[in-house]
């Protein structure tokens, strides 16, 4: 046997399914895969199936379930609070475009290689890594009508600010402002990465063609950032439709006249306060389906999104 054939043979046994090494590796790989699958099954799939079932019952979360067919869904159609909280949830999503625009502008500013870029990046990122509960409590104080920081600042310029969280008209904008502030750093960082990864040659070519700054932005920077924008919109919409923590902390009773109550907050109230787990499950089914439709729609609209420059 020549040396070559030995190597060949070794190679063959290594890749052959009967080899011990292959089997060990294979087992390890399976083990790695199995963990998240188990987690997914226990923590997501089973509860999901369970709640699909529960949504067709009048389960109160304590006792037995009685099948009631579509009754929960019929009740929902007539439930004003369901529609109001759903409306509030979408209203609060107005913060998403605002946040995206602001973070894009910030990222553009920071990508110009100014001094202290790292410093600002840290500053804007701090809210992202802070606990949401802590932030909500802090803003709750800031929004206080009498002693709040926000109104103190407004008083400096002679404006008497409202009691933000107790006023039907200001409570939603107040929460939007907080969410934008909280999410700014994350979106900014993604945009920064996207902007900095645009090849310099594109801009050089555009310069040769005599493009002005706006044209360069419109035809190069913005399209190149589209995948990031898409990603941010999707994740923000999904996150936004589940907004709960800040609502529950800042306006524990759903705000004046339910004006800041979101759908998830309402579901939680129904499930854990009013013993209507079945009805709550039904609402979360609808919410889940809504999120799915919106996301699918976004994928459809954005199906042409890629790096191709038009």
């Amino acid at each position: 046997m020549t040396e070559e054939t030995v190597v060949e043979k070794k190679k063959k046994t290594f890749f052959h399914h009967d080899s011990k090494l292959y089997r060990d590796e294979h087992r390890a790989a399976l083990l790695m895969i199995v963990l998240p699958v188990i987690g997914f099954t226990i923590f997501t799939l089973l509860p999901l199936i369970y709640s699909i079932f529960a949504s067709f019952t009048n389960w109160n979360g304590l006792g037995e379930m009685t099948f009631t067919g579509w009754r929960n869904f019929q009740l929902m159609m007539k439930d004003n609070y369901f529609w109001q909280t759903l409306g509030n949830t979408f209203y609060l999503m107005l913060g998403i475009p605002i946040g995206l625009i602001l973070s894009f502008l910030l990222a553009s500013a920071l990508s110009r290689g100014l001094k202290g870029t790292t410093f600002f990046r840290v500053v804007y990122y701090i809210p992202v890594i802070s606990s949401l509960a802590a932030i909500a409590i802090m803003w709750q104080w800031a929004y206080n009508g009498d002693y709040g920081l926000v109104n103190q600042v407004l008083a400096l310029v002679g404006i008497k600010g409202p009691n933000w969280l107790q006023n039907v008209h200001t409570v939603k904008p107040a929460i939007i402002a907080m969410s934008v502030w909280k999410g700014l750093g994350y979106s900014m960082l993604l945009y920064l990465a996207a902007i900095q990864s645009v090849p310099k040659s594109f801009y050089e070519a555009a310069d040769l063609d005599g493009a002005n700054a706006f044209q360069k932005f419109k035809n190069i920077t913005w399209p190149m950032c589209r995948p990031v924008t898409f990603f941010l919109i999707i994740t923000n919409v999904i996150g936004g439709s589940q907004i709960f923590t800040e609502i529950n902390i800042m306006t524990p009773t759903g705000g004046p006249e339910y004006s800041s109550a979101t759908i998830v907050w309402y579901i939680w109230q129904k499930a854990f306060k009013n013993f209507q787990m079945g009805y709550a499950s039904a609402m979360s089914m609808i919410l889940g389906i809504l999120i799915f439709i919106i996301t699918a729609l976004q994928f459809y609209v954005n199906r042409k999104s890629d790096y191709k420059l038009s």
Binding site: F43, Q242, I267
Partner: peptide, 12 residues
């Protein structure tokens, strides 16, 4: 549906 994940987590 993620809400159920959260609630499930709390429960579990």
């Amino acid at each position: 549906m993620k809400i159920w994940k959260k609630l499930g987590l709390v429960a579990l």
